[in-house]
Amino acid sequence: MSIKTSHTRLFLYLILGLIVLFCTNVFLGSIHISIEEFFRGLYDASSTNHLIIHAVRIPKALSSILIGIGLGLAGFLMQILFRNPLSGPYVLGVTTGGSLGAALFILGSALFSFGFIHPKFGIPLFSSLGSLAVLAMILVVYKRIKDPMTLLITGILFSSISGAVISLLAYFSSAERLREFVFWSYGSTHLMNTYELFLLALSCVLCFVFALKNAKPLEAFLAGDVMAKTLGVDVDKIRFQIIIFTGLTVGVLTAFAGPIAFVGLVVPHISRQILKTSNVRLQLISVSLIGSLFVLACDVVATLPGSALSLPINAVTSIIGAPILLFIVIKTKRFIF
């Protein structure tokens, strides 16, 4: 693998951008803090801003980065798996499973009683279980029918079923519960404590390492199933592994951050436009960097610095992501993969 100087330069720019955006994200918030107060707040534990910076802003920025990396990787792998530019991390249906789990916990208390489990613990728990259940079902189907098209359809089917059950639960629930569920589905970069950040980081790292180790077989995938097989790639096994690692990453992301739209879909496309190579190793790094940049940027916008209000992250990623995707499609003149 040859890393050209142009690639190195690009990565350097991206990393630089990441650092700048991280600092911007931490510096800006709904409360205006001057530069001097900011530095004091960073180091001085007794300063009033210390808590805001350390307990609110820094975790938020870190989780934005991790969410960007996770979704970027997941989207990238899904697009390779299905050789389809419209694939995103949600195409397997794992996220809807996660939503179903969350819905069961939030809305289902009308029908079932969960004793008292605190939502901070209960929602991620149930959401993960939901994601795992869907993932397991998909793997079972895959073991029997090894065709990617079937996988795609199965994912859509499971998504629909989950969606229908969620509607049912919503129909019978109270206004307050419904509101809570709706708020959850807006997605959130907030409130990640160290434990959650660690789990998120762990799943991103696992996913990245897996993809890195299998970079060549993944490239062969791009050349087509037949070509990959004749090159000695165990296509079925790799597909299985992709499903597992992506499913787990997406499951963890949904459990802690809720469903966040568009990132996994648009980031690999941006990466491909900037870094025109099929080299999977390079794309992995690029997708991770661009993913974190994208979510950090969206988070800055969502915070509406200086204003008391803030926007749900889902809305911002969609509003920013969709036009970018459209622009790329128009620029390349056809939706080629």
């Binding site: 805001i52 609110v56 915070t303 008391a308 209000l309």
Partner: peptide
């Protein structure tokens, strides 16, 4: 005195600050 109609969605930072 906040000039918004409808219910407010406030950032926790702002809540803490005010």
């Amino acid at each position: 005195d906040l000039e918004y109609t409808g219910s407010l969605q406030l950032d926790m930072e702002f809540v803490f600050g005010t």
